[in-house]
């Protein structure tokens, strides 16, 4: 079980990373992250949406509505230019922590090239 604090900290890079592969919506983002982490990282809905809105307020994301065949429309989010740049920064930060931990654990085999 991954502690809440770590999950909360990784929320932003996860969202930015998922959206870097193309526009998506809240439910899909949750599903996507759950599937690649095997369910280790899972968010309640009420935490995800406000964070999406905050990133939108910070101009990292933009949103648009798209009609679906059945039921109400769906709200999609995609990265802005600023969001793409922010993802780069986040990536560097996570990698440097990752590398530091790897070297401390003496697991050079896992060290990225």
């Amino acid at each position: 079980m991954i502690p809440k604090a770590l999950i909360a900290a990784s929320l932003k890079p996860f969202i930015l990373s998922v959206l870097s592969r193309g526009p998506s919506y809240g439910y899909e983002i949750i599903q996507h992250v759950e599937s690649i982490t095997g369910g280790d990282v899972s968010w309640t809905t009420s935490t995800l949406y406000p964070v999406l809105h905050r990133l939108e307020n910070e101009d990292l994301l933009e949103s648009f509505w798209q009609e679906v065949e059945k039921g109400p429309a769906r709200k999609y989010y995609r990265l802005t230019k600023k969001g793409v740049a922010r993802l780069e920064t986040e990536k560097q930060q996570w990698l440097s922590i990752h590398e530091a931990l790897i070297s401390l654990w003496d697991m050079p085999g896992l060290k990225p090239a």
Partner: peptide, 13 residues
């Protein structure tokens, strides 16, 4: 708008 978004989420789920 939030309610629309959340409703869509419930329906998808």
């Amino acid at each position: 708008e939030d309610r629309d978004e959340l409703e869509r989420h419930i329906r998808d789920a």
